[in-house]
Design a protein around this nucleic acid. Structure first.
Lengths: 123, 123
DNA sequence: CGACAATACATGCACATGCAAAGGATGCAA
DNA sequence: TTGCATCCTTTGCATGTGCATGTATTGTCG
């Protein structure tokens, strides 16, 4: 049976509300580590990748950002020394973004914060 | 029992993904009516209010926008003639945003689109 | 009554994002 | 080799948002 319009609207409203609540909380919490939500997402993806490195194209799939936005996020992370870019050997058009030592440390520091916020807001 | 970190992360990821999917679909669909998601939300709220009018402050509570962003959304709607602003008589600091005839029509036109997108993406 | 805080909006500014276009390096196939 | 597609960076522009601030009005306290 199809849902009524109001039921759909309420469900959507609830989803938006939860998303907004968690996002704002995350943003605030991660600010203490000088990270944004997008930045953390990228770090998390890299951290879980083999060799702590990943092609941009692959990142583009998991992170919800346009190509240009992703390029800029990685650029910011590079400026902070958390990520380094290097050529891809098998396909030299590609670029590997790899987590640096500092990046790993920053991520490890921020992870408990991230986890706590999720636990508090997704209960 | 508390959820594991990975379970939390997956749940969050799923939420973000769904939110992004629906939002993008809505944005695309509503574009045919020259409306953004925020604009539609405001119209919907006004349409369901008594007298089709509402104080900014009250709107601010239901719509997930900062006060300044809300002020601008209403400004855009006013530019399009879909909403009109008028002084509040009992408290002259306050402002009523009220749906115009054109606003009601636009909303009625866009509502089926909105409903369809939700039905297709929240199933 | 008069000074001062609080409220309701509007606006200036910074910034993140998406889109689109241009460019450089490389891979691939005819 | 030539030509075209792919992967990525960079840039310019428009837009939407939040934060901080400004302005006008209201409320409060002495």
């Amino acid at each position: 049976m199809a849902k009524s319009e109001s039921a759909l609207a309420e469900q959507w409203q609830a989803l938006v509300e939860q998303h907004a609540r968690v996002t704002i909380a995350l943003e605030r919490a991660l600010a203490e580590h000088d990270l944004g939500v997008s930045e953390f997402e990228v770090l998390a993806e890299l951290a879980s990748a083999p060799e702590s490195a990943c092609r941009m194209q692959q990142l583009s799939g998991t992170v919800h950002l346009s190509q240009s936005a992703l390029s800029r996020v990685v650029g910011r992370l590079e400026d902070q020394g958390l990520v380094s870019r290097s050529m891809c050997e098998d396909d030299r058009r590609g670029i590997y973004a790899s987590l640096t030592e500092a990046g790993r440390e920053r991520y490890d520091l921020a992870r408990p914060t991230h986890r706590t916020v999720l636990a508090d807001n997704l209960g």
